[in-house]
C-alpha cells in the first residue's frame, strides 16, 4: 500500500490540478499578476523607492517630473514619486477587497444556504430582499450611501459590502436548491443529522468551488467600483495614496502631465485583469458555472 496512502493520493490530485491549471496560460499570467500585486502591497515600505512620499510630503521643485529612471512613473503636482504612491495604493485596494468580500461573501453565502435549503417563507423573504438590492444600480446605491454617511474609505467599504452580498446569495441559492435533493442529503437526514450539519458539512463544501471562482472574479470589480467612488471624491481622502483619488487629481493636469493619471489608471487595470484571468482559469479548472 505504498502508492495509495491517503496523503499520496491527495498529493497526486493536487499535482494533477496544478498541471491542468498550468496548461491555461491566461490563468497562469493572472495568478502571477495577482501574486505580484499582493507581494508588492505587503512589502510596500521595502519595495517603494520613496516610501516617505506617501503622505503629505511636498517637494515643489520636483513637481510634474516626467517618467525617468529615478521616477519611473513620474511625479505628481506635489513632487511625489507616483510609483511609490501606486505601490502603497495597492494596499488600500486590497484592504478594500478583503474587507468588502470578507463581509459580503460569508453573509451572502449564509443567506443563500438558508433560502435554498429551507425554501418556503425563508426563501421568499431572502430572495425578495436580493431582488430589491438588484433593482438599484450598484454605483448609484454606493454613491447614495457614502453621501449620506461621510466620504471616507471605511464608509465606501461598508457601502460596497451592503451591495455585494446579494450576488452570492443568488448564486448559492440556485446551487443549494438543486443540491438539496441529492441522496446524500436525504441519507444524512435519515441518519438523524441536524440542519446545521446538513447546511455546513454536506452542502457548503459543495459550494466552495463556485464561491471561490465568483469571489476571485468579484475582486477585480470591487477594486474598480471602489476606485470609481474615490475618483468621485467619495472614498479615501487625499493625501491617502488611493488609486482612484490619484487618477482623479492627476486628471486636472491632463493632457500635459499625462503620467499623473495614466499610471494609477493602468495600475487599477492591472489588478482587474489579473483577478479576471485568474477567475476564468479557476472556473475552467473547477468546471463550475457562475452566473
Amino acid at each position: 500500500m505504498s502508492l495509495t496512502t491517503p496523503r499520496a493520493d491527495r498529493l497526486r490530485a493536487v499535482r494533477r490540478a496544478w498541471y491542468r491549471f498550468r496548461r491555461n496560460p491566461a490563468a497562469v499570467v493572472g495568478l502571477a499578476m495577482v501574486l505580484l500585486v499582493f507581494v508588492v502591497a505587503i512589502f510596500a515600505p521595502l519595495v517603494a523607492p520613496f516610501p516617505e512620499h506617501v503622505g503629505g510630503f511636498v517637494d515643489f521643485r520636483n513637481r510634474h517630473q516626467p517618467p525617468s529612471w529615478t521616477h519611473p512613473f513620474g511625479t505628481d503636482n506635489a513632487g511625489r514619486d507616483i510609483l511609490s504612491r501606486v505601490i502603497f495604493g495597492y494596499r488600500i485596494s486590497l484592504t478594500l477587497v478583503v474587507f468588502v468580500l470578507g463581509l459580503a461573501v460569508p453573509f451572502g453565502v449564509l443567506l443563500g444556504l438558508l433560502a435554498g435549503y429551507y425554501g418556503g417563507w425563508v426563501e421568499t423573504v431572502i430572495m425578495r430582499l436580493t431582488d430589491v438590492f438588484l433593482a438599484i444600480p450598484a454605483l448609484v446605491m454606493a454613491l447614495a450611501i457614502t453621501a449620506a454617511l461621510s466620504p471616507t474609505l471605511l464608509n465606501s467599504m461598508i457601502a460596497l459590502a451592503l451591495l455585494w452580498w446579494n450576488w452570492h446569495t443568488r448564486l448559492i441559492y440556485t446551487t443549494v436548491a438543486s443540491l438539496k435533493h441529492e441522496e446524500y442529503v436525504e441519507a444524512a437526514k435519515v441518519a438523524g443529522a441536524s440542519d446545521f450539519h446538513i447546511l455546513f458539512r454536506e452542502l457548503l463544501p459543495n459550494c466552495v468551488s463556485v464561491i471561490s471562482v465568483k469571489t476571485t472574479l468579484d475582486a477585480g470589480f470591487v477594486i474598480l467600483i471602489g476606485a470609481g467612488l474615490s475618483f468621485l471624491g467619495l472614498g479615501a481622502q487625499p493625501p491617502t495614496p488611493d488609486l482612484g483619488t490619484m487618477v482623479s487629481s492627476g486628471a486636472n493636469y491632463l493632457p500635459e502631465y499625462w503620467w499623473g493619471s495614466i499610471f494609477p489608471g493602468l495600475a487599477i487595470l492591472f489588478t482587474i485583469l489579473g483577478f479576471n484571468l485568474l477567475g476564468d482559469g479557476l472556473r475552467d479548472l473547477l468546471d463550475v458555472e457562475v452566473n
Binding site: 441529492e182 441522496e183 446524500y184 436525504e186 441519507a187 444524512a188 435519515v190 441518519a191 438523524g192 443529522a193 441536524s194 450539519h197 458539512r201 454536506e202 463544501p205 459543495n206 466552495v208
Partner: peptide
C-alpha cells in the same frame, strides 16, 4: 436509529466532498 435506508443512485448517495470515513461518522456522531 431503528430504521435506515439505502438509496437508488450510488452516484449521489455519497457526498463528493466527504470521505468514506466522514460519511460513516455522521450516524455515529448523531
Amino acid at each position: 436509529r431503528r430504521v435506515q435506508m439505502v438509496f437508488q443512485n450510488p452516484g449521489s448517495s455519497l457526498n463528493p466532498r466527504r470521505s468514506v470515513a466522514d460519511a460513516l461518522k455522521v450516524p455515529l456522531r448523531v
